[in-house]
Amino acid sequence: MVKRRIYGLMAEFTSPEEVLAAAHTTHDAGYRRIDAFSPIPVEGLAEAVGFDWTILPTLVFFGGLGGGLTGFGMCWYANVISFPLNIGGKPFNSWPMWIPITFELTILGAALTAVFGMLALNGLPTPYHPTFNVERFAAASTDRFFLCIKARDQKFDLAKTKAFLEGLHPNGVFEVED
């Protein structure tokens, strides 16, 4: 039998509070490359595994700005530069008339950035991920909570880390094959 590489170790918990406490303990113990998995968003869990900042809102702001400028620019360009029509001496750049389109494209730009930015930052779609090799992991989308310490972590040592995770009183500890 070929010995498979190890992606990390995973511990299973029953409740959000347990996994949250375990994540804090693990982070305090000096582990940095950790992740937690849950069937519902758990408040504070991302911070507990060391995630504190996302660029997403900034991206969305610029997405909206880009959309808005496109909308206004398009109307302005069409009516002032590309195809100006003098209708009773009315101004070419009748900007209040551009507002609805500017507004709609602002929203469109921001919404597209929010969705595709979120997916891109999360690295989705990910058809294959080592965590799926753990049979019990299917329960992570129903009612079980998992904490994973990755093998890439500097402090990672198969035996010691396993003992550490078992000390957190999980339902079980599993090796994640890469």
């Binding site: 992740d35 998995f37 069937p39 968003p41 758990v42 991920h129």
Partner: peptide
């Protein structure tokens, strides 16, 4: 899309949902 419920993913996901809600309202 290979969603696995990672805490980091959830965090960005919630941010995106909230932003989308804020955008969909107006």
């Amino acid at each position: 899309m290979g969603w696995r419920g990672s805490a980091v993913h959830w965090s960005r996901y919630e941010t995106a949902s909230l932003l989308l809600a804020g955008l969909a309202t107006p």
